[in-house]
């Protein structure tokens, strides 16, 4: 089995998912080559062949330019599998590459069982094994699903590629994340509000518990989108990645994007009325209770200690 791994680079830096692509190739026993639009001064630690297109020449992500470059490599290497990270780069580019290759595309692969990719359904409540009926396939891998035991080492053998197409989409620059406010990455205790808090007035109760535990409060994406909590307190893929000693998730269902941001917490307490919520998967303690009753009661007891 030959796999082409699509590494990622943005704004002068390699992105973290690249090691997971290598771990995946190793897990399925594939012979791999790698593709990157990036820079020679920042090459991935990869001992194999790397097709490199220059990031300065190609500009930042442009779908059709990157697609055409990948298709050149596909033509040459004839991989059975093209593998991306399931990221804003991967989920945008993978279907385009798959369509051109007339290959099946399987999104957000979390495992491979009996040579079949496994993907989540309904917010990870269910899973399904996918039977691909084409000779070639394109996968995107869920962040964190395939991780290497050790940091990879090695220097790639580089073959350069030149771009020969222009895209229909014009890139006009990046807007950095809002700075200032709260840096949750250094908090020792975080109490987070999820959609289950029900209404904006209940954020106060979550903040009060955080204060009683001498920590900070955070929130999951739906709560931030509803503007109950400001964005700089959002935990998850599109917010902050945290690693406190104690993480208390109040009414957080546990979407994969949220889990990705908090799974390095040392101890996780989840408070939820739904015993089957995916947050239970990462919780050390799951309290099955109505948080509107439980949280204020806990706050009072902690204060009285």
């Amino acid at each position: 089995m030959k796999a082409l791994l699509i590494a990622e680079y943005r704004d002068g830096k390699l992105l973290g998912g690249n090691n997971e692509l290598m771990a995946f190739a190793e897990k399925i026993g594939a012979e791999s080559t790698m593709f990157l639009v990036g820079n020679e001064s920042a090459l991935p630690a990869y001992s194999g062949k790397l097709y490199l297109a220059d990031g300065n020449e190609c500009g930042e992500y442009n779908p059709s330019v990157h697609k055409d470059l990948i298709l050149k490599v596909v033509e040459k290497e004839q991989p059975e599998l093209v593998v991306f990270s399931h990221s804003s780069y991967g989920w945008d580019l993978a279907p385009r590459v798959a369509y051109a290759m007339q290959a099946a595309q399987v999104s957000e692969v979390v495992d491979v069982v009996d040579s079949m990719p496994v993907v989540p359904v309904c917010n990870a409540k269910l899973r399904r094994n996918v039977k691909v009926t084409t000779a070639k396939a394109v996968y995107t891998l869920q962040a964190g699903a395939f991780s290497a035991a050790e940091e990879p080492t090695g220097t790639p053998e580089v073959e350069k590629l030149n771009k020969d197409s222009e895209g229909k989409i014009v890139f006009e620059g990046y807007e950095e994340a809002e700075k200032g406010g709260v840096d949750l990455s250094k908090s020792e205790v975080i109490v987070s509000a999820g959609r289950g808090v029900g209404k904006p007035e209940n954020i106060e109760m979550v903040a009060a518990l955080a204060e009683a535990l001498k920590g900070d409060y955070g929130a999951s994406r739906p709560v931030v989108d509803a503007e109950w909590v400001e964005h700089n307190r959002q935990v998850g893929t599109t917010g902050q990645t945290v690693s406190p000693k104690l993480y208390v998730a109040c009414g957080v269902s546990g979407a994969i994007q949220h889990l990705a941001g908090m799974k390095k917490s040392e101890f996780v307490v989840a408070i939820n009325t739904d015993k089957d919520a995916p947050i239970g998967e990462v919780a050390d303690v799951l309290v099955v209770a109505d948080l509107k009753q439980f949280v204020p009661a806990l706050t009072e007891k902690v204060k009285s200690l």
């Binding site: 992105l15 930042e60 804003s88 989409i169 014009v170 620059g173 807007e175 893929t237």
Partner: peptide
């Protein structure tokens, strides 16, 4: 604007 990881956005036009 496209939402990327870590709160970064890419401004694009078409």
């Amino acid at each position: 604007k496209r939402e990327l990881e870590g709160g970064v956005k890419a401004k694009v036009k078409t």
